[in-house]
Design a protein around this nucleic acid. Structure first.
Length: 594
RNA sequence: GCGCCGUUGGUCCAGUGGUAGGACAGAGCCUUCCCAAGGCUCUAGCCCGGGUUCAAUUCCCGGACGGCGCACCA
C-alpha cells in the first residue's frame, strides 16, 4: 500500500472524507467530509479567515453560488468553457473543432454550431489533424462545458450557472462594495464558499473534484498609487520556482526572502509578493510541511485569460506537486468587463491631491435655432459640434463649421455653436481598480494538512501511525478516558471533566471502550493532541484529585490537579503555552511500570 | 472522453458455477490493566442491470464507481 492509499483508507475509516452517495453507486468528483474532516476543514477555514479577513483588515461577503448567464458572458467563462474538441485517432492530439472549421472554411463563428453539424463539416471538408495530417472525419466531436448549467425559475428561458469560481460573486457586487468601502482604495473582500466545475474526468481523489471550496481574497487597488505593506513580510523565507527555472532540465529552486525576490525582480508585482509572504506564514501555521512546499510561477502559456502574472502555492503529495493556491494579478480585466456588460459603474472616483485646472473647448449650441433647422437631427448635430470642439477647436475660427451627422455633411453658423474655451476644475478621475487575487483551494489544503501530518513511529515496540496535526486545527482537542470502565468513581470524574472542557468550548471525545492503549491510538490516529486519563492513583491521597495528561507526539504524561486542568489545556491547545512548559510545573508520569 | 486493470463485512484482502473465509476495526461483559497483541460472547459483506444456466458473488455484455496511462484542468 502506498502512503496515498493508506491516507485514503484512513480518511474513509475514520471519517475524514469519502466518496458521496455510495449507497447509490457513487458519483465521480463529489466527496463528503465526515465528522473529523468537516471539523478539520472548519478549523482550517476559520484560521484562514483569521489571517486573510481579520488580520489584513478585510471584509467577508457571501454571494450566491448560482448566477445568471450574462454574468459569465461578461467574465469570459461562457466562451472559455464552451469548447468543442476533436481528438485525432492517429496521434491523440486534441484540437478545437470550431477553430479547425473557421481556419479551413469560410464559416465564421463555428463555435455556435451544433455538434452534429460540426462533425458533418469536418467530414465534408475533409479536415485533417494539424499535428500529423491524419483525416479527422468520423471522429466524435466532444462538447465540454465546464460550468454546471441550470435554469432559474419555471420554464427554461432563464439560464444560470453554478459559479466556477467564487470570485465573480465579489466582482459582480463591486458597485455596492465600493460604496461600502466609501470609495476608498485599497480595500479587500474575502469569500469562503463552494465553486463548481463539471470536470471531464475527476481524478486523484479529493484533489480534483466537481464541487469544492475556495477561500478567496479580492484586493482592489489603485495601480498608480497603492503599495502593499511589503515590510511586514520582507524577511519571510520562501522557496521559489520561477518560469525561467522551469524551462531548464534540472529542477532548481531559488531560496530567498520575499524582500530579495522583489528587489531581484523575480516576483514582478509587489502585491503578489506580499501575499506570497502572508500565505507562507499561514500555511506554516496550519501545519503544511515547508520542505514539501513551494511557490511556482505560471509559464506564459499557462496563465488564465484574466491573469498577467500568476504564482501558485504547491504542496508535494505522494511525489506529485499539487496546486493548492493561486496568486494572480488580474489587472482591471474583471471590473472592465462588468463595466462593459453590466448596468452599474465598476469604477472608483479618485480625488487628486490638488485639483487640476484644465482648459477645455466647449460648445453650447443654440437649440432654439438648431431645432427648427435640423428637426430630429438637432441633438446629433449638437453632439457632433462638441465632438469637433474636443478634436479640433480651431475649426470654430471661421464663420461656419461643418460636421458629419449620419453620413450627411451639415454646415452650421459658428455663432449658433456658442463656442468658447473655459477653464474647468478637475478634482479627480474615475479609475478602474486593479485586482490582486490570492485564491486558496480549501479541500486541497485540508488534504495537504492531513498528508503532511501523517507520521509513523514506535511506542513500546509497537508501530504507531498518527496525525501530527497542529492543536489549533485538530478536529478533536482532548480525549478523556476513565482508566477502567466499570469503576463508577473513575467514570463519574471523567464525565465531569468532559463537561468542564466542553463548557469552555473545547472539542472533547470521551472513550471508555477497550484498554487504555487502544484508546490512545484511536485518538492518535485522528490527530487529537491531548488525552486526559482518570485513574485510581489520582483519587488516592490527601491532596486534590489529579489526572494524567498525555501529549500525542511524545506520548509523555504529566500528572495535573483536576482544578487546573481546564485552564492549562486551554493554554496548550491554543498554542499560548507549549506542552514542554508544563513539564516544569508538573510531575512526569512513569509509564514503564505497565 | 479513450485504453488497461479492478470492485467480496466499517477497513484491507483470500476464494468459489450450488450464496463465502481471514486479518484489522467495532459492540457487550470480565479486568485497580496507562500505550493497539488478555479471556468470553456478538455484529457485519459478494457494486448495479441484462444475458447464459436447474443454479451466477463466480462466466459473458453493458453501466456506475475506483486506480493507472493519454487527453483535459480556462
Amino acid at each position: 500500500m502506498t502512503n496515498a492509499e493508506k491516507l485514503t483508507e484512513l480518511a474513509k475509516r475514520r471519517g475524514f472524507f469519502f466518496g458521496s452517495s455510495e449507497a447509490y453507486g457513487g458519483v465521480a468528483g463529489f466527496y463528503t467530509f465526515g465528522p473529523e474532516g468537516a471539523a478539520l476543514k472548519r478549523n482550517v477555514e476559520s484560521s484562514w479567515r483569521e489571517q486573510f479577513t481579520t488580520r489584513l483588515g478585510n471584509e467577508e461577503i457571501e454571494a450566491p453560488t448560482i448566477m445568471p448567464e450574462p454574468v459569465f458572458e461578461a467574465s469570459g467563462h461562457l466562451d472559455g468553457f464552451d469548447d468543442m474538441l476533436v481528438e485525432c485517432a492517429e496521434c491523440g492530439e486534441s484540437h478545437r473543432a470550431d477553430h479547425l472549421i473557421e481556419d479551413n472554411t469560410d464559416i465564421e463563428e463555428a463555435e455556435s454550431l451544433p455538434i452534429a453539424e460540426v462533425e458533418e463539416l469536418i467530414a465534408e471538408h475533409e479536415l485533417e489533424c494539424p499535428n500529423c495530417g491524419a483525416p479527422l472525419a468520423g471522429q466524435d466531436v466532444v462538447d465540454f462545458n465546464l460550468m454546471f448549467e441550470t435554469s432559474i425559475g419555471p420554464g427554461n428561458g432563464h439560464p444560470g450557472y453554478l459559479r466556477p469560481e467564487t470570485a465573480q460573486g465579489i466582482f459582480v457586487e463591486f458597485p455596492r462594495l465600493k460604496e461600502y468601502a466609501r470609495n476608498q482604495l485599497p480595500f479587500g473582500i474575502t469569500q469562503v464558499g463552494r465553486a463548481y466545475r463539471n470536470e471531464i474526468s475527476p481524478r486523484k481523489g479529493i484533489v480534483r473534484t466537481r464541487e469544492f471550496t475556495q477561500a478567496e481574497l479580492e484586493q482592489f487597488i489603485d495601480p498608480e498609487s497603492d503599495e502593499p505593506p511589503l515590510e511586514d513580510v520582507r524577511d519571510v523565507e520562501v522557496v521559489l520556482y520561477p518560469a525561467t527555472e522551469q524551462e531548464k532540465e534540472s529542477v532548481e529552486y531559488i531560496e530567498t526572502t520575499i524582500g530579495d525576490a522583489v528587489d531581484d525582480g523575480i516576483i514582478a508585482s509587489d502585491w503578489v509578493a506580499y501575499f506570497l509572504g502572508v500565505a507562507q506564514g499561514w500555511y506554516e501555521s496550519v501545519g503544511v510541511d515547508m520542505d514539501r512546499f513551494r511557490f511556482r510561477q505560471h509559464l506564459p502559456g499557462e496563465r488564465a485569460h484574466y491573469a498577467s502574472d500568476c504564482w501558485d502555492a504547491e504542496s508535494e503529495l505522494g511525489g506529485d506537486w499539487v496546486e493548492i493556491a493561486g496568486f494572480a494579478y488580474r489587472g482591471d480585466y474583471d471590473l472592465s468587463k462588468h463595466e462593459e456588460y453590466g448596468d452599474d459603474s465598476f469604477t472608483v472616483f479618485q480625488q487628486y491631491d490638488d485639483p487640476k485646472t484644465v482648459e477645455r473647448a466647449v460648445v453650447d449650441p443654440d437649440m432654439s435655432a438648431l431645432g427648427p433647422e435640423f428637426g430630429g437631427q438637432a441633438m446629433a448635430v449638437a453632439e457632433a459640434l462638441q465632438d469637433l470642439a474636443d478634436r479640433n477647436p480651431d475649426a470654430f475660427d471661421s464663420d461656419e463649421v461643418t460636421v458629419e451627422v449620419d453620413g450627411d455633411e451639415v454646415t452650421v453658423d459658428t455663432d449658433l455653436a456658442n463656442f468658447s474655451v473655459e477653464e474647468q476644475t478637475e478634482s479627480g478621475e474615475h479609475i478602474t481598480p486593479h485586482v490582486v487575487e490570492p485564491s486558496f483551494g480549501v479541500d486541497r489544503t485540508v488534504y495537504t494538512v492531513i498528508a503532511h501530518a501523517y507520521a509513523k513511529d514506535e511506542v513500546a515496540d509497537e508501530a504507531r501511525s498518527f496525525l501530527q496535526l497542529d492543536p489549533t486545527i485538530a478536529p478533536t482537542s482532548v480525549g478523556v478516558f476513565p482508566l477502567l470502565s466499570n469503576a463508577e468513581e473513575l467514570t463519574e470524574q471523567a464525565h465531569d471533566i468532559v463537561d468542564a472542557l466542553r463548557d469552555v468550548g473545547l472539542s472533547v471525545a470521551y472513550d471508555e471502550s477497550g484498554n487504555i492503549g487502544r484508546r490512545y491510538r484511536r485518538q492518535d490516529e485522528v490527530g487529537t493532541p491531548f488525552c486526559v486519563t482518570v485513574d485510581y492513583e489520582g483519587l488516592e491521597g490527601d491532596g486534590p484529585d489529579t489526572v494524567t495528561l498525555r501529549e500525542r507526539d511524545s506520548t509523555a504524561q504529566l500528572r495535573l490537579p483536576v482544578d487546573v486542568l481546564v485552564e492549562e489545556l486551554v493554554a496548550v491547545r491554543s498554542g499560548a503555552k507549549p506542552f514542554d512548559a508544563l513539564r516544569e510545573d508538573y510531575e512526569a508520569v512513569d509509564s514503564d511500570d505497565a
